[in-house]
């Protein structure tokens, strides 16, 4: 299944919900709501700030709702992640054209309370900014979201070999950037 959600037809699989178009509204929305924490994690790992991350999440949920008629009843999670990836790529392209977009997220969004180390997250985000959107999405899907290489390939609509080469580049670049920080991460005792 190499195509994104808008292009392919006749995909087979084991639908968890009723077939496309026949989904009960409440269950679609409940299913989407259950995906929000994972989508939020992904959007925040792609975005430049938590505010941007919430904005991207909102865009994604809106898009999923707007396109629900196109959903074919198979794996809502992957479909939503595909949409998120595309939205992120669009934004990234737009941001490259006009780098001063910091005010665009000037909205009142609720950002989750965080318990992690904000300095560490800021550091990681700064290092991730050097990755291309292609390499960054691949790395996040595999490492943070825990998708298999095949699932990642499906979400990104690329061959698995490309997943591997992107992963390799992403790890290499990220290591270089983090090394510039001159901060050595210590392994936590398990």
């Amino acid at each position: 299944m190499p195509r994104g959600p808008d292009n392919g037809t006749g995909e087979t699989g084991s639908p968890k919900e009723s077939p496309a178009g026949g989904a009960v509204p409440a269950s679609f929305e409940d299913a989407l709501l259950a995906l929000v924490p994972g989508l939020r994690r992904y959007s925040h790992s792609l975005a430049r700030s938590d505010a941007d991350g919430e904005d991207l999440l909102q865009d994604c949920v809106e898009t999923v709702l707007a396109r629900r008629a196109q959903w074919r009843g198979v794996n809502l999670r992957s479909w939503a992640f595909t949409i998120m990836t595309n939205l992120y790529r669009n934004r990234h392209r737009a941001a490259v054209r006009r780098p001063t977009t910091v005010i665009e997220d000037a909205q009142d969004v609720a950002v989750p309370d965080q318990t992690g180390d904000p300095l560490e997250r800021a550091r990681i985000r700064a290092a991730l900014e050097s990755l291309s959107p292609e390499n960054r999405t691949t790395l996040m899907l595999v490492v943070v979201e825990g998708y298999s290489y095949q699932e990642t390939a499906d979400i990104l609509a690329i061959p698995i070999g490309t997943v591997m080469s992107r992963l390799s580049r992403a790890r290499h670049q990220l290591a270089e950037q983090l090394a510039k920080d001159n901060i050595v991460a210590l392994r936590r005792p398990k």
Binding site: P37, R40, R41, H44, S45, P112, D113, Q114, T115, G116, D117, E120, R121, I124, R125, L139, M140, V143, V144, L178, A185
Partner: peptide
């Protein structure tokens, strides 16, 4: 580090 940065809080 990636998982620590993004996993726990969301």
């Amino acid at each position: 580090r990636l998982r620590d940065a993004f996993s726990a809080d969301f």
